[in-house]
C-alpha cells in the first residue's frame, strides 16, 4: 500500500507541474456545462442544467481517464517501469497506483465541475446523495482507467493509442444518455444508448437526483470495473514476466 501511495504521489507531482494540462482538463467540461447547459433551448425538462450535469460529470471522468493509459505506457517506453519492476515493491502496486491516480484525478476535476454547476443554478443535493454520486464516479473512473491502461498495454505504441482514444471518446459520449433522455432519441440511438456504459453511470446519477438509491446500476458498474481490472492485471502480468 505504501508503494501504491508513493507511485501516486509521483504521478501527482508530475501532473501538477504541467500547469497547462491541469487547466485544460477543467476548461473543456466547464465549457460544456456553461455553453450547452445554459444555452441549449430544450423543451423536455424544466432545468436542463440539472439534466446535463450528470452527463458532464461522467464525461469529465471519461476524458480524464481515457487517454491516461499512456501514463503506464510512457513509464515503460522511457525505462521507468524496468527500474520499478527491479524493486522489492509488489509489482501489481504499479498498476493499481496508475488506475487509482487516474480515477482520483478525474474525481478532483468533477468536484470543480460540481461546484460550478451549483454556482450557475443546479439544484443542491444532500450529503448522502453527493456521496453516492462520488461512489458511482469512482467506479466508473476505475472502469475507464483500467480499460485505457489495458488498451495502451495491448497496443504498445503511442500513436496508435492516441488514435484509439480520439476515435472512441466522442462517439461514446454522443451515443450515451448525456445530452437527452431516451424518449426523445431516435430509436437507433436509444438502442445504442441503452448498452453504452456511460449511460449506466449517467442514469444512476440522475436517479440519485430524484431521491432514489440506484443499487442495480452500482452493482453493474462494480461488475464492469471488476472484469476490466482482471483484464488489466492479466495484460500487466504478461508484460512483466
Amino acid at each position: 500500500m505504501k508503494g501504491v501511495l508513493t507511485y501516486m504521489h509521483r504521478d501527482f507531482i508530475r501532473w501538477i507541474r504541467y500547469r497547462v494540462g491541469v487547466v485544460s482538463a477543467l476548461v473543456l467540461p466547464a465549457a460544456w456545462l456553461i455553453f450547452v447547459g445554459l444555452a441549449l433551448p430544450v423543451q423536455f425538462t424544466g432545468n436542463y442544467l440539472d439534466f446535463i450535469t450528470p452527463g458532464i460529470l461522467v464525461m469529465t471522468i471519461l476524458t480524464a481517464g481515457i487517454s491516461s493509459g499512456s501514463l503506464l505506457m510512457f513509464d515503460k517506453i522511457l525505462g521507468f517501469l524496468n527500474k520499478f519492476l527491479a524493486m522489492p515493491v509488489p509489482r501489481e502496486s504499479i498498476l493499481v497506483s496508475k488506475i487509482l491516480f487516474i480515477t482520483v484525478r478525474g474525481i478532483l476535476q468533477t468536484t470543480i465541475i460540481l461546484i460550478i454547476a451549483v454556482l450557475i443554478g443546479a439544484t443542491i443535493l444532500n450529503p448522502l446523495q453527493y456521496g453516492l454520486i462520488y461512489l458511482i464516479l469512482f467506479l466508473f473512473g476505475v472502469f475507464i482507467a483500467a480499460f485505457s491502461t489495458t488498451v495502451a498495454l495491448y497496443l504498445n505504441d503511442h500513436d496508435s493509442f492516441a488514435a484509439f482514444t480520439a476515435m472512441v471518446t466522442m462517439p461514446l459520449f454522443f451515443t450515451s444518455s448525456a445530452l437527452m433522455p431516451y424518449d426523445v432519441m431516435p430509436e437507433w440511438l436509444s438502442m445504442i444508448a441503452h448498452v453504452n456504459p456511460l449511460s449506466f453511470a449517467i442514469d444512476a446519477i440522475r436517479e440519485i437526483g430524484t431521491g432514489a438509491i440506484p443499487i442495480f446500476p452500482i452493482a453493474l458498474l462494480m461488475l464492469f470495473a471488476g472484469v476490466i481490472l482482471i483484464l488489466a492485471g492479466h495484460m500487466f502480468r504478461k508484460l512483466t514476466v
Binding site: R10, Y18, L78, F80, K83
Partner: peptide
C-alpha cells in the same frame, strides 16, 4: 541505460 529520471521533479 535509458536515463530514466523524472525531469519535472
Amino acid at each position: 541505460q535509458d536515463m530514466a529520471v523524472d525531469t519535472n521533479l
